[in-house]
Simulated scan of single mutants.
Amino acid sequence: MPNVRHRARIAAMQTLYELDLTDHPLEPTLERRIADEALSAEGADFARRIARGAWELRHEIDAIIEQAAPHWPLYQMPPIEKAILRLAIWELLYNKHDPAPMKAVINEAVELGKHFGGANSGRFINGVLGTVVKTRLA
């Protein structure tokens, strides 16, 4: 199951990244990413749920990011980090259907940041999510 969710998070993250940089519509972009990742039915359902949830609530989530990282305006933030943070914050705060453990969500986000982002992405993502957890879930 962890591998299924990891691959689903990658597809969802790539979808959010693409949507942020283009005017492509959500559904065809998401379905293409799911197909590219060759996800199982379970993985595809999870990717759809988290990508749709994070995209639909992006304005609310972006406000949370801005509060947690006041020295990094969203317009200056690398789009990949923004996509990862949107997904992770959606999972931490809004995923009521089948929530993952908080530490698992944060670890996954940090790993995605290390793999897809810049040299300091993992540390930055960890710091922002730590602040979100302290201020929103404590």
Rank of each mutant, 00 (worst) to 15 (best):
M77F: 03
P79G: 06
I50C: 02
L26C: 00
R49I: 00
L21A: 08
L92C: 12
R136T: 05
M1H: 13
L74D: 05
F116S: 11
R7G: 15
I80V: 15
W72H: 15
I84S: 00
E66K: 04
I50K: 06
I125G: 01
A83G: 10
I106E: 09
D62E: 04
P101W: 02
E81Q: 04
A88R: 03
K134W: 13
Q14T: 09
A38E: 11
D20V: 01
A38K: 01
I89T: 08
G118F: 02
L92F: 04
I89L: 10
V133K: 15
A38L: 07
A12N: 00
H6F: 14
P25R: 11
L137M: 04
D23N: 11
N3R: 11
L112I: 06
R5Q: 05
A44S: 09
Y17A: 07
S40M: 00
Q67W: 00
D20C: 13
D98G: 03
L92Q: 02
T29G: 12
F46K: 03
A109L: 05
I34H: 04
A54C: 01
K82S: 06
N3I: 10
R33N: 15
I64C: 07
R33H: 14
D98M: 10
P78W: 00
V110K: 08
A11V: 05
